[in-house]
C-alpha cells in the first residue's frame, strides 16, 4: 500500500521542502504535492536509486519550482552563487567551549536561535546541512538527492557547518556572556 511505502520518509520529504522554502505552511503543501506526484510517477521509479532519495529529490524540485514561481529565487540566487573553491573557512575562534546540553532545547529562545542561523545560510549550504545534519542522510544520499557528487556535498557541508559555528558559537558561549549565560542567570544558576 502506497501509504505504508511513504510513511517512513514523510518527515524527510517535509524537511527537504522546508530547507528551501523556510516556511511551515509551504513546506507542508509541497510535501503533499510530492507524495501525490510520487504516486502518479511510481512507474518511473528505478530500483537502482533508493526510494527515500527519489522522494526527497522530488520534494527538492517541487520546492524549487514553487520558489521560482514566487520569484523568490531571484533573491535567493544572489547568495547561492558562491564559488565552491573559494571563500573563507574561518570559524569563530574561541578559546574555550562549554557544552550546551540538549535539555537547553526546552528553551524557545535557543530553538529560535538555531532556526534563525539555518535560515541565514545561503540556500546551497542550507539544503546540504538540513539533509545531512538535521535529517541524518548520508553524504551519498545527500549527493543523490541534490544531483551533485560527494565532493560537492562535503565542501558545502564544511562551509555550512563553519558558518553555523561562526554565527552561533559567540552567542552560545556562556563564558562570554552569551544568550545561554543569560538563561542561566535567569534560571538562578541551573538550566531550568
Amino acid at each position: 500500500m502506497f501509504h505504508e511505502l511513504v510513511r517512513p520518509y514523510e518527515k524527510s520529504v517535509y524537511f527537504a521542502a522546508y530547507s528551501i522554502l523556510q516556511n511551515e505552511h509551504d513546506a507542508e503543501d509541497v510535501a503533499q504535492e510530492t507524495v501525490l506526484k510520487a504516486l502518479r510517477s511510481l512507474h518511473t521509479f528505478r530500483a537502482e536509486s533508493k526510494f527515500s532519495t527519489w522522494l526527497v529529490s522530488i520534494a527538492l524540485n517541487e520546492a524549487r519550482g514553487r520558489l521560482r514561481h514566487e520569484r523568490l529565487i531571484q533573491f535567493d540566487s544572489v547568495d547561492a552563487i558562491p564559488d565552491e573553491d573559494s571563500g573563507d573557512f574561518t570559524p569563530a575562534v574561541i578559546s574555550d567551549w562549554r557544552e550546551v546540553p540538549l535539555e537547553a532545547l526546552e528553551r524557545k529562545e535557543l530553538r529560535d536561535m538555531l532556526r534563525k542561523a539555518i535560515r541565514g545560510l545561503p540556500a546551497m549550504y542550507r539544503e546540504v546541512l538540513v539533509l545531512r545534519d538535521v535529517q541524518d542522510l548520508s553524504i551519498a544520499e545527500t549527493a543523490a538527492a541534490l544531483g551533485v557528487n560527494d565532493g560537492v556535498v562535503k565542501t558545502r557541508l564544511l562551509r555550512a557547518r563553519l558558518m553555523m559555528q561562526k554565527v552561533l558559537a559567540p552567542q552560545l558561549n556562556i563564558g562570554r556572556g552569551g544568550l545561554l549565560g543569560m538563561f542561566k542567570r535567569r534560571a538562578g544558576g541551573s538550566w531550568f
Binding site: 567551549w97 535557543l110 546541512l129 545534519d133 553555523m164
Partner: peptide, 10 residues
C-alpha cells in the same frame, strides 16, 4: 562547539 551545534540542530 561545531559538534555541539550539530547535536542541537539534529
Amino acid at each position: 562547539s561545531t559538534r555541539n551545534i550539530l547535536y542541537l540542530i539534529a
